[in-house]
Amino acid sequence: MRCQLAIATIFAVMVMAGQAGAEDGNRGKVLYKAYCSQCHGMEADGYGVNAGYMEIQPKDHTEAKEMNARTDDDLFKAIRDGGKAINKSVLMPAWGKNISEEDIWALVRYLREISATED
């Protein structure tokens, strides 16, 4: 009985550790869906459900050419402090109070992944 319990515990810990690992890799994707897809689109192409009502169009994050022109620090700053901080539209909100810095970096990595670009 005690032995079974120990095995069950080890198994549970392994499962939980596995989930935590997977979650980490997915973090940027999950955050993007929650906070960004409403404007930038479920496929990150700039055509979110709100885009039709906006005077300035949300950026297409799959567009490698434009994404290549940005450093990771540019992207980080745009997300944390909003469009205004990088001389772009205020319609890109500042997310620094909603999303931790660590998670904003996860978003930057996710943007690099979907645009197949680098810093």
Partner: peptide, 15 residues
């Protein structure tokens, strides 16, 4: 949550 009710179409995302 709009993302749970969104369809992706040729004219952009829609509810």
């Amino acid at each position: 949550f709009s993302g749970n009710h969104t369809v992706v179409t040729d004219d952009g995302d829609d509810i």
